[in-house]
């Protein structure tokens, strides 16, 4: 780093320190002006965010390191930029608004430098430094924004899966899971988890898996069904599969899928009728204890 670089850096840091409140206020004002599309953030939240980030920025500049990488190496600055972006991603702000936020800070900062400095060389050098610093921040902010949105999508699809696999109580010690849609690995894991937990909570003896709403049963789906049945049995409960429509029964037969070890019924009503006798605890030689 040359001595002039150091001088510019000190100058910018000084400006930041001396005008921290003004810069933060101006930044908030610029963001309010841009926010035509609206954002969930209140004025107070924006101010709080701005104060923290401006403070982190001057702290980062005072420490060492290349301006381009400060946003990655300075922990406090990194966290502030990340949080700012995640807040916008979660709050439903548009990607434009999220990236304009950092741009607006650049403008606020440049204005502050221009107010105290009148030498064009110095302003140019300061602008270069601010650009290096905040362009990196903008890039990080964009990446975090995308990541934040992806996280939301992941969470929502997971919630959707959870909602589409309810476990209902049909009878004393009899639970049922009506499956709607296909049964892939992720879905199977959720069904198993919800069902087994419900079995434990209710001390249920029979679980009915109703596949009326499952459009097709191929080898993979059958395998996932078998897995669920096996897990239910390991818990010490029984399993009945219901809702096998004629075309699906044919497919199962044609594919040579062996479901012979599983009790199956055509309808949920038939399955319940088959399940209720199973809830009587058998005696030592299979006789009814009650």
């Amino acid at each position: 780093m040359t001595s002039s670089d150091t001088a510019v850096r000190e100058r910018v840091t000084q400006v930041l320190r001396a005008n921290a409140d003004d810069i933060a206020d101006r930044w908030v004002q610029l963001q309010r002006e841009q926010a035509v599309l609206g954002s969930d953030l209140t004025e107070g939240e924006l101010h709080e965010e701005a104060d923290a980030l401006v403070a982190a920025l001057s702290a980062a500049l005072e420490g060492g390191g290349r301006p381009q990488s400060l946003v990655h190496t300075h922990e406090d600055l990194n966290r502030n930029v990340t949080d700012l972006s995640l807040r916008r991603a979660r709050g439903g702000a548009s990607p434009t608004l999220a990236s304009l936020a950092v741009q607006a800070l650049k403008q606020a900062l440049l204005e502050a430098v221009r107010r105290v400095s009148h030498e064009s060389d110095e302003i140019l050098a300061a602008a270069l430094l601010i650009n290096q610093l905040l362009d990196a921040a903008g890039a990080l902010s964009f990446e975090v924004y995308v990541e934040g949105r992806e996280e939301i999508i992941r969470r929502q699809s997971r919630q959707l899966l959870e909602m589409s696999t309810p476990v209902v109580r049909l009878w004393r010690k009899v639970l049922a899971v009506p499956l709607i849609g296909t049964l892939d690995t992720a879905r199977t894991q959720i069904v198993m988890e919800n069902l087994l937990q419900a079995i434990q909570d209710d001390q249920a003896l029979v679980a009915i898996i109703d596949i009326t709403g499952v459009p097709t049963v191929d080898t993979a789906v059958a395998q996932h069904l078998m897995q669920t049945v096996k897990a239910v049995r390991l818990m010490g409960a029984d399993c009945v599969i219901s809702g096998i429509r004629p075309p699906i029964a044919q497919t199962i037969a044609q594919l040579g899928i062996d479901l012979s070890t599983i009790l199956t019924r055509a309808t949920l009503a038939d399955a319940l009728a088959a399940a209720i006798p199973l809830t009587d605890t058998p005696g030592p030689d299979g006789t009814d204890a009650r």
Partner: peptide, 25 residues
């Protein structure tokens, strides 16, 4: 009394404890 996470993990491991009788509690 096998716990749900244990049952799920065993099935995924490929073990169904053939020949072992189980009970809820």
């Amino acid at each position: 009394g096998m716990r749900p996470p244990v049952a799920i993990t065993l099935v995924e491991l490929g073990i169904e404890l053939a020949g072992v009788e189980t009970a809820l509690s």
